[in-house]
């Protein structure tokens, strides 16, 4: 599907760029100029249009597996952090232990992706690094509780994945977090 989308984008680009020949310059005037022209295409389409194969049992199995994984994922506790900090808060240690236990029991045959997130105070790289450090300290805590490092990957979404968009301290504190995602 991805390659089809990319091909469509390239074809669209070629069609449009075919129309966009260099502007004609009127040489008869005092001074003429071709104004630099931005590219008109290169639009790609997201995966929202992807069709779902419902014609065979393999799809059903997959859906079933994904549903089970999504259900299990909800059993993991979210780990919250203080402003501009990436150390595990004392009130989060119990949650982390429970998460580690879950990772080593019900989810022991799955990989774990830790998603580091931040509040809206900053859109720069530092904010992304802060999200990553939060994921990393969570990873270290899980390893200390016996979860294999090879099962854990990390990603930081910075401020781009908020669960709450109100302009309140309570809301911002909900966005400074690490989420658990399960991978096959």
């Amino acid at each position: 599907m991805k390659s089809i989308l990319l091909s469509s984008a390239v074809i669209a680009l070629l069609v449009f760029s075919g129309c966009s020949k260099e502007p004609v310059v009127d040489q008869s005037v005092n001074q003429a100029e071709n104004v630099m022209q931005p590219e008109t295409t290169t639009e790609t389409v997201g995966s929202d249009n992807a069709s779902v194969d419902t014609g065979n049992g393999a799809g059903d199995d997959l859906d079933n597996k994904e549903m089970k994984m999504a259900k299990l994922e909800k059993e993991f506790s979210v780990i919250y952090f203080d402003f501009d900090k990436f150390l595990i808060r004392s009130d989060m240690k119990e949650n982390l232990s429970a998460d580690a236990q879950l990772a080593n029991t019900k989810a022991s045959n799955l990989n774990i992706k830790l998603e580091g997130n931040c509040d809206e105070w900053g859109s720069d790289e530092y904010n992304f690094a802060l999200g990553l450090k939060r994921a990393n300290t969570t990873k270290d805590a899980l390893i200390a509780e016996g979860v294999s490092a090879s099962r854990i990957s990390m990603i930081s979404y910075g401020e781009t994945n908020p669960t709450c968009s109100d302009k309140t301290k309570d809301c911002w504190s909900k966005n400074r977090r690490v989420n658990f995602k399960l991978l096959p």
Partner: peptide
């Protein structure tokens, strides 16, 4: 004095910027 020409009026703002530049 100067003249400007582009293919598409949708990007006319860039002509205005070019005029200011000149």
């Amino acid at each position: 004095l100067k003249k400007y020409e582009i293919r598409n009026k949708n990007i006319s703002v860039f002509v205005a910027h070019s005029i200011a530049y000149d």
